[in-house]
Simulated scan of single mutants.
Amino acid sequence: MAERRLSYGAGAPHAVLLLGCFTIAGWAAFFASGQASLWRMGVWFVGSAVAHDWVLFPIYAGVDRLLRRATRADRPDRIAVLNHIRVPALGAALLFLVFLPGILDLRGGTYEAATGQHRVSYAIRWLWVSGALFLLSFVVLAIRRARRR
């Protein structure tokens, strides 16, 4: 009978290093936020993990499956097209998440007090940057295809 090991695959030194990093990160979060905020941070973290795993992942996995079918990515020459759609879409999605309050105008009254500037919606700017990402990606794809020919 083969001996069964409980391991995650990278070895004991790596596991000890990771455990130390998580301990330091947890201590820093606890020290920086205080006990009352620590509960709220934990709820936010668990909520965001659940929202990602149960809502966002099925959505973007489904969209990726549709893109694979639409671009016929089963052929090697079509994989580049799929990746030239994925990369700017990922950039646009990450920018949307980072600037979500500004894009949806969810900022409170503290913005103007803190910056001295009037609130400006980031929606148009986000659309311009996202469009520029897709345009740049398709220009790079066109250059790559022209060089191949």
Score class of each variant (00 low, 15 high):
residue 80 A to S: 14
residue 66 L to E: 04
residue 104 L to F: 06
residue 80 A to F: 15
residue 66 L to K: 11
residue 84 H to P: 07
residue 61 A to C: 02
residue 69 R to Y: 08
residue 74 D to F: 05
residue 92 A to F: 04
residue 76 P to V: 12
residue 107 R to G: 13
residue 122 Y to I: 03
residue 48 S to G: 05
residue 75 R to V: 10
residue 79 I to G: 10
residue 51 A to N: 15
residue 57 F to T: 15
residue 89 A to H: 07
residue 54 W to I: 04
residue 48 S to K: 06
residue 84 H to S: 05
residue 51 A to K: 15
residue 111 Y to E: 12
residue 67 L to T: 09
residue 111 Y to V: 05
residue 122 Y to N: 06
residue 113 A to L: 11
residue 105 D to N: 10
residue 55 V to F: 09
residue 85 I to Y: 01
residue 72 R to G: 15
residue 122 Y to F: 02
residue 70 A to Q: 02
residue 92 A to Q: 11
residue 91 G to Q: 08
residue 110 T to F: 08
residue 66 L to P: 09
residue 75 R to S: 03
residue 70 A to L: 04
residue 91 G to D: 15
residue 78 R to C: 11
residue 84 H to C: 10
residue 86 R to G: 12
residue 108 G to T: 06
residue 101 P to M: 03
residue 77 D to I: 15
residue 111 Y to H: 09
residue 99 F to L: 10
residue 66 L to Q: 05
residue 95 L to V: 13
residue 51 A to L: 05
residue 112 E to N: 11
residue 54 W to H: 13
residue 87 V to F: 08
residue 122 Y to V: 00
residue 65 R to I: 14
residue 89 A to Y: 11
residue 69 R to W: 14
residue 109 G to V: 03
residue 48 S to M: 06
residue 49 A to C: 12
residue 100 L to W: 07
residue 108 G to A: 00
residue 68 R to T: 06
residue 47 G to Y: 03
residue 94 L to M: 07
residue 82 L to E: 00
residue 50 V to K: 09
residue 113 A to T: 09
residue 115 T to F: 05
residue 116 G to I: 13
residue 102 G to M: 05
residue 85 I to D: 05
residue 88 P to E: 14
residue 65 R to E: 08
residue 58 P to E: 03
residue 114 A to C: 09
residue 57 F to R: 15
residue 110 T to V: 07
residue 56 L to P: 12
residue 103 I to P: 01
residue 88 P to N: 08
residue 53 D to G: 14
residue 99 F to T: 08
residue 85 I to K: 00
residue 80 A to K: 00
residue 113 A to Q: 08
residue 79 I to Q: 07
residue 65 R to Q: 10
residue 115 T to L: 00
residue 105 D to M: 00
residue 89 A to E: 08
residue 87 V to K: 00
residue 92 A to E: 14
residue 107 R to Q: 15
residue 61 A to I: 06
residue 62 G to C: 03
residue 105 D to A: 03
residue 59 I to W: 03
residue 63 V to K: 00
residue 112 E to G: 11
residue 79 I to K: 08
residue 82 L to H: 05
residue 51 A to D: 14
residue 112 E to V: 09
residue 122 Y to C: 06
residue 104 L to S: 13
residue 121 S to F: 00
residue 90 L to C: 08
residue 84 H to Q: 01
residue 75 R to G: 06
residue 77 D to C: 08
residue 73 A to S: 13
residue 114 A to R: 06
residue 78 R to Q: 04
residue 103 I to V: 06
residue 49 A to F: 13
residue 52 H to A: 02
residue 119 R to D: 01
residue 72 R to S: 15
residue 68 R to I: 07
residue 103 I to N: 03
residue 78 R to M: 05
residue 119 R to C: 01
residue 96 F to E: 12
residue 86 R to T: 14
residue 63 V to R: 02
residue 50 V to T: 11
residue 94 L to S: 11
residue 91 G to I: 04
residue 119 R to Q: 01
residue 77 D to Y: 09
residue 98 V to G: 12
residue 113 A to R: 04
residue 92 A to S: 09
residue 87 V to C: 02
residue 115 T to K: 00
